[in-house]
């Protein structure tokens, strides 16, 4: 299935919002997958995973426990970009999505035991181009995106758009 870059970006943005990822971080995840669409499948487990409060330790570099990749990677990337070192996200796998998020900020990461650590600031951001996605993965992401849609009611159909249902003038 070939999708446009904008379709991919908008679907990911809505899917992230649908599961409660804040808007600013949702935008960054969407841009990362726009640049690395092959990581779309790696998004699914993170969309399905409940988010609990993360614990940030700023005493030596940055260490994060209980992080949600979708919500908390942005702050870790901010720190890495600004030269904070070391930056470690504990208990998080260095999946394709994590690499895509890092690349999107010009960063590189690596697995360190059961953690993710930031390793460099010279990653090349990929060129954006439309491409193929696996239809089954697309449909699953679309189900998360649908969590931003409000079910129709008679009242919303008649009043929510401010227009009638016939335009035969």
């Amino acid at each position: 299935m070939i999708v446009s870059s904008n379709e991919l970006q908008m679907l990911v943005l809505k899917a992230c919002r649908g599961v409660g990822v804040p808007m600013g971080q949702s935008q960054e995840v969407a841009v990362a997958l726009l640049e690395s669409p092959q990581a779309l499948g790696a998004l699914l487990p993170h969309l399905a995973q409940p988010m609990k409060p993360a614990k940030f330790d700023f005493s030596e570099g940055l260490t994060v426990h209980d992080a949600s990749l979708l919500r908390d990677f942005s702050a870790c990337a901010d720190a890495a970009v600004l030269g904070v070192w070391p930056v470690r996200i504990c208990g998080l796998a260095a999946c394709d999505l994590a690499h895509a998020l890092a690349r999107s900020r010009g960063l590189s990461i690596a697995a360190a035991a059961a953690d993710v650590v930031f390793t460099g600031k010279d990653a090349m951001r990929p060129e954006v181009s439309r491409g193929a996605v696996v239809p089954e993965i697309w449909q699953q992401v679309a189900r998360f995106a649908a969590l931003t849609y409000v079910p129709e009611t008679d009242a919303s159909r008649l009043g929510g758009a401010g227009a009638g249902l016939s335009d035969n003038d």
Partner: peptide, 8 residues
Amino acid sequence: AQFPEHRY
């Protein structure tokens, strides 16, 4: 980092 909802 502590108030991720305000990033936007």
